[in-house]
Write a protein that binds this DNA or RNA. Structure first.
Ligand SMILES: [Mn+2]
Ligand SMILES: [Mn+2]
Ligand SMILES: [Zn+2]
Ligand SMILES: [Zn+2]
Lengths: 141, 141
DNA sequence: TTCCATATTTATAATCATTACAATTATATA
DNA sequence: TATATAATTGTAATGATTATAAATATGGAA
């Protein structure tokens, strides 16, 4: 069941997106699962609840959401695109061991300025890669 | 003709890579073309000079170079991988208009520290996107 | 309610970058 | 030269994403 269905519906309507069953469910999923899922992960998670769902609809919906600024795609692994419902600028850490994508709360001067070396910035991707805190801990045991 | 063939040969040998004709040419290409080419661009540029060259060899060679730390892959566009012979950490700017990938010379505190919020950093990708200086100039004319 | 235009969703096929694989060719050494 | 090993090639396979056209749902006019 969709939690806070009304607020999700409003979010879509504010962006001029018709709040269909498929779209409501995908947005609801993104709101509740902040681990930056792939299209495939979204599809797999929702197909139980929405048995008629197709991958095409997931991709279409994600593209619409991207156009309307409801999410940002992350090109961090080089293979699949990950989707981030949090459109506020922030950095990410990708753990090569557990494959998690972790939000970072660090300050970056350029995030606000909007320009760098004369170029106008409209988008920012700060990707750090390595071994995450948890995996470091496990590794040293 | 390969410029500075000896230095390129040395670079390969220092990394324990046998300096074959294909590898010498690909490394030479990367040394001279610092615009972050794709595998396809490298293939297209070299197939005149090395008519027997195959895409597979380009991909294989680039993977070897990556393993040995001779280059870094850039996952900046979300479609093709771009290759950067400059392995010193630096940021990039992608122009949505002219599609150029431009090196940025900005300082990032975390580039040196090697860790962020407890996670160990081994790799850094700073991607800015927008409209580059040149395209801004052209656009305002 | 019924009909119709339009938007959404679906199933399927196509695309494109990349990798896997096995056959061919080059290289090095005995 | 013969032989083992490594590099390269051509082709097929893979996997994520998009294109396309048919099926379905939706919302208003009659
Ligand atoms: Mn995030
Ligand atoms: Mn660069
Ligand atoms: Zn981890
Ligand atoms: Zn430009």
């Amino acid at each position: 069941m969709i939690i806070n269905m009304e607020s999700i519906k409003n979010t879509l309507q504010e962006k001029g997106i018709k709040p269909t069953y498929v779209r409501l469910n995908i947005l609801d999923y993104l709101e509740r699962n902040r681990f930056h899922p792939t299209a495939e992960a979204i599809f797999k998670s929702l197909e139980k609840k929405v048995p008629t769902l197709s991958r095409t609809s997931v991709y279409n919906t994600l593209n619409i959401f991207k156009e309307k600024g409801l999410l940002n795609p992350l090109f961090i692994t080089g293979s699949e695109v990950h989707f981030d419902r949090n459109t506020a600028p922030h950095h990410h850490f990708f753990c090569k061991k557990c494959k998690k994508i972790i939000d970072l709360d660090i300050k970056c001067a350029y995030f606000k300025e909007g320009e760098v070396e004369g170029h106008k910035i409209t988008e920012l991707h700060g990707y750090f890669k390595g071994i995450c805190k948890d995996c470091l801990k496990k590794g040293s045991k």
